[in-house]
Design a protein around this nucleic acid. Structure first.
Lengths: 331, 331
DNA sequence: CTGAAAGCGCTTACAG
DNA sequence: CTGAAAGCGCTTACAG
């Protein structure tokens, strides 16, 4: 376990040139089996590992991908990172995290990412507006860095992305409630703008309009402790027999208030959420929710990125993964 | 927004040598104000950003820290990463993620991390056994890479760490239940071994013994859907008037079964959890829980690491952050 | 205060 | 199949 073995020492010990050592590492087929074995043996004995930084500089490839997120704290982000990490590891890529807080200067951040010489980027930040997305696309295109959107909706066919059809999901769950006989159905969304929530609202609105019902979107901070009063006040004088939360936690929060103010779930109010998290399993009644394959979205996005980085031909840049409704007690 | 501006072009445009450009970036005080301004202006005009890889190779510093985790999916990990990321950004460090799955070869992973030339490492993996911890310490010490344990318990005063006193927390919550008149108190822990859970159990056991009560640890997979049956079967013929879950989700899961099988909470069974997550706010009844400043643990650990990387003198290598009990309906 | 030069540890044409 | 040499884009003693 000696420290700091360089390629030079390996070459010396194996009685070959640096070039040959480098070749057995990068193009083993180009070196004669005999010498290859000899070098490999020395590498193992000395515990040599090529310095990733030097390699990166010389080859112009860092085998590192950048992952741009806004709030790593969100459960969906963490799970997506799980999928990303597993696939990255499989293809020997490292992951570098970049976080974009609310008021950050996007150009600065992008320049940082470019300066870090990542080979590709995964974009998980779904709070970006159209201008920011344009800047992102331009910067990465300029610098020839492939990138893919993971669980981010952006209406541009030339941008690789993987997601689910949130509009369809929103439509389906709303339809289900309507068929269930509900009429005063609210969508409980967030104050902050997320591209995926826009889609959910869109699907909801379409289903309501189609049924001749009035779509009504209520926006909450998403903060559970704040929700409480907010919900209670707002709904105290409203007719409501159905509610769809853009997140399970919002749905459960509403469900609790609802029960506590005498509106029984699901008898008087049907409730559903998005994401199929533990919240929906631990709540009482249990929550009907749309299962979103978040881990898979991350994994597939990372896989897509590896192809892009290898300049492989792709049949399609946009991957839409399937979702499904998990029915439980609340609807 | 031109592509690939190098230090050479900046030097040319500013009519100075590369060395000077490098100096205004790294040791601005060593260059005359006039020329400094001139160079800075050119840098801005050209949009120059030093190539982080080249810089890393030349300076032997990458301003990157490695973060070693086992399961990024866990909520506490995600939140800790939030704290880490915020502080890292503040001190201009990048974060590289390394995940250690269950059956991974630790030495290989460590060699990877070393090869990546990170300046320091944060260890969030709390499923490591003593041998693995020894290997880790040796490897990093050998390679002169500082590291700190974040929310990981390891009994070695020479290893920097930040955490809370889990044994004390376990003791306190148990004491509270005892004072509340409970006698048949179970600790609901995990099958998998986590260093922090060992401590919680220790505190619990001490409090029970001290009160002349029999400590009883029940182990669950931590999987909510599996829990259900597991709990129901096990407790069907047991006397139980108190239960402490090592995680909120476990506590809530138990609480639900309890209520459903006719044991009212908190009247017949008191319940408490650890972590003070949303689960405890959204559950009915709401859950008493130990608040653990997970974000802060990450932030403080990262801050400590920056000091270590700068070879600053420290008064103490081990930081213990405060915790407190949030009382709600379940106890 | 500034520049010329060596060097960080690799990869990759180019010859042979 | 293999080696000598240039180069990746920086930093950092060393002179001056």
């Amino acid at each position: 376990m000696s420290t700091k073995v360089t390629i030079y020492e390996v070459a010396l010990a194996a009685r070959v040139s640096l070039a040959t050592v480098s070749r057995v590492l990068n193009n083993p087929e180009k070196v004669k089996p005999d010498t290859r074995e000899r070098v490999l043996k020395v590498i193992k004995e000395l515990g040599y590992r090529p310095n990733a930084i030097a390699r990166g500089l010389a080859s112009r490839k860092t085998t590192t991908v950048g992952v741009l997120i806004s709030d790593i704290t969100r459960a969906s982000v963490a799970e997506m990172l799980g999928g990303i990490s597993d696939i990255a590891m499989k293809y020997s890529y490292s992951i570098k995290l970049f976080s974009a807080h609310e008021n950050i200067n996007i150009s600065d951040l992008l320049n940082d990412i470019v300066a870090e010489q990542v080979d590709g980027v995964l974009l998980l930040n779904d709070e970006l507006d159209l201008n920011q997305m344009k800047t992102i696309k331009e910067t990465f295109d300029d610098n020839d860095i492939p990138f893919v959107l993971a669980n981010v909706i952006y209406d541009d066919q030339t941008v690789p992305s993987v997601s689910i059809d949130y509009a369809k999901a929103g439509y389906e769950i709303t339809k289900l409630m309507i068929e269930n006989g509900r009429k005063d159905i609210y969508m409980l969304s967030t104050v902050r703008k997320y591209s995926v929530n826009d889609q959910k609202e869109l699907g909801y609105t379409n289903a309501m309009n189609e049924a001749g019902l009035q779509p009504k979107v209520f926006r909450t901070s998403g903060n559970t402790s704040v929700n409480r009063q907010h919900f209670a006040n707002f709904f105290s004088d409203k007719a409501v027999d159905g509610a769809i939360g853009v997140r399970d936690s919002i749905a459960v929060s509403f469900m609790n208030i609802s029960s506590e103010t005498g509106r029984r779930v699901p008898e008087m109010v049907a409730v559903a959420g998005f994401q199929n998290t533990k919240y929906g399993i631990l709540s009482r009644p249990t929550l009907t929710s749309i299962d979103i394959p978040v881990y898979d979205i991350g994994a597939v996005a990372m896989r897509l990125l590896t192809k892009l980085m290898n300049k492989e031909k792709l049949d399609s840049l946009q991957v839409v993964l399937p979702h499904y409704i998990v029915r439980r007690e609340s609807l």
